[in-house]
Amino acid sequence: MPSAPPLLQARSLGRRVPGAQRWLLKDINLQITGGERLAIIGRTGSGKSVLLRALSGLDPIDAGEILWRGNTISNADVPNFRRQAIYLRQRPAIFEGTVETNLRIAYSLRIRGNEDFQKRRVIDLLTQAGRDENFLDKSAAELSGGEAQITALIRALQCDPTLLMLDEPTASLDPDSATAVEQMVIDWQQADNSRAVIWVSHDPAQVQRVATREFALDHGTRKESHRA
């Protein structure tokens, strides 16, 4: 039986500085399959976040291609691709209202059709994060950095993606919140072997804890890594 194509694949991916000739990323070949937790590592300015944004389709690319389950992603397919492969920013975006308002936003999008907000599922996720149901009523303006990141993570996880792309999600969190986020992501991925995670990190200890494989970047190109 032929093996299933990778979930996400980048072929000779390149991105330039907007409006300039200099490459931010050059000739990147990368793939991730279900069951993997891939860490993108590298020094500050090596292009980790640029790569993750390009993989998520948030930024235009100037060379190469990105395949989702072996297929190129047409313009019309982009929202559906992003429904399955969700990108999370380093600093979460929180909308006005309560935590619940923030979670319901995902269901206001056309791509989710007639799906409804699943409160039971969200409460389970909150429990994993060490929060109870009352957290849903908390004002978004009063959330700490850690709580905001947990809210953003639950907002993504409730959508049942196949791939999570996390851009240093614990960079500005206290150690307890960082551990909670790490554990939630690992638990989520391990609950279903078809799921995968790409995690940008500059913390070697964290990479050891969360990743099953590493992809090292240096000045926008691939650097050989011992765990590759």
Partner: peptide, 16 residues
Amino acid sequence: RDRVETLLSLGATRWE
């Protein structure tokens, strides 16, 4: 910008 990109990340169309 953060909110616009978050909506796009969740599968919003550019118009949404």
